[in-house]
């Protein structure tokens, strides 16, 4: 078991190296020259060449890559071309709102979706079930920005119960203002995950409820509630946890849009600004950061399987 955990942790290293290589190449090979963007519309060819020299962009690509990896290992993601600040510092400044938004979103989604899916499965074919399924299809279909503006219109502009935009840190400004500001973006972003997770939970629980050991539990005289919580849910958990993991990956895309809609100063906004400005070091840093977060989440999910199901031993 310990050996499996060690092997699984070590196996993330080649993946991270590959990701780093791809990130590096993808951006170098993309059309567009940051040096000419920095130099501006009226720059001469010499100006552009000088800037390119300063940034190291005229060196051979292998040298650029090695230089980049070397600094990466020391925790240096480079400096922003435009602001001149270290990328790690920029990410550090913006990480909290994004992390908080992701955390509240996924927590809210799981807390709502798992019971909803279980209920739908338990009452499969009933009105409740049909409502949950209908909600799921709807949740998949509505884009985040459309839903965001609809919710803003209802809760902020018409009812006036929640703010239109902004972010308050729970650490410096207290949990009350934090929740007040995070609720709307979080709910908006979570709808699609509720749909996804509820659907998967429903399918998985329906399958498990057909199993022989559920019948055994009934034969013991166990109540339906306990059958669901004790026997069905844990057996249904592996596919649900997998989908939650996928959900966290998809969340990254959703965060970018949601932060724009609700004007939250997080990583999503940083991504957007960097892409528009072709600020290579920031884009690289962010893609790497998100990739590593995702690799880490995958690791946690893989390891959680062994806790959920004793039959899974590698």
């Amino acid at each position: 078991m310990t050996r499996y955990i060690i092997m699984r942790v070590l196996s993330t290293i080649p993946v991270m190296v590959l990701v780093a290589l791809f990130v590096f190449l993808m951006l170098r090979l993309a059309p567009g020259d940051p040096a000419s963007v920095i130099a501006g519309d009226y720059a001469t060819a010499e100006d552009v060449a000088r800037i390119r020299e300063q940034l190291g962009l005229s060196d051979p690509i292998v040298v650029q890559f090695l230089r980049w990896v070397a600094s990466l290992v020391q925790g240096d993601l480079g400096t922003s071309i435009f602001s001149g600040k270290p990328v790690t510092e920029l990410i550090g400044q913006r990480i909290e709102p994004t992390l908080m938004l992701a955390l509240t979103t996924i927590t809210f989604a799981v807390v709502v979706a798992v019971p909803l899916g279980t209920l739908a499965a338990f009452r499969a074919g009933s009105l409740v079930d049909r409502f949950v399924m209908l909600f799921s299809v709807g949740g998949f279909s509505v884009p985040v920005f459309v839903l965001g503006y609809i919710l803003i219109y209802i809760f902020s502009m018409t009812l006036g119960v929640l703010p239109v935009q902004g972010y308050k840190s729970p650490f410096t400004e207290g949990i009350g203002p934090f929740l007040y500001h995070i609720t709307l973006p979080s709910v908006t972003l979570s709808v699609i995950f509720i749909a996804l997770i509820a659907r998967m939970t429903r399918a998985s629980v329906i399958e498990v409820l057909e199993e022989d050991y559920i019948r055994t539990a009934r034969a013991k005289g166990q109540s339906e509630m306990k059958i669901l919580t004790r026997h069905a849910l844990r057996n249904a958990a592996v596919p649900v946890v997998t989908v939650i993991g996928i959900g966290i990956a998809l969340l990254i895309g959703g965060v970018v849009v949601t932060e724009s809609v609700f004007n939250i100063p997080g990583l999503g906004r940083l991504v957007l600004d960097a892409v528009l400005a072709r600020d290579y070091p920031i884009i690289q840093g962010l893609i790497l950061f998100f990739s590593f977060v995702y690799i880490f989440i995958n690791l946690i999910i893989d390891l959680s399987y062994t806790l959920l199901d004793p039959r899974i031993r590698y």
Binding site: T216, R218, R234, N235, P310
Partner: peptide
């Protein structure tokens, strides 16, 4: 009442003991 009788007064064993037991408990 039926749940009470199951287990107390009547019990059942099944064909396939592998699937009749919960694999994660």
């Amino acid at each position: 009442r039926l749940r009470k009788l199951r287990g107390e007064k009547m019990s059942m064993i099944f064909q396939e003991p592998m699937t009749a037991l919960n694999p994660v408990l």
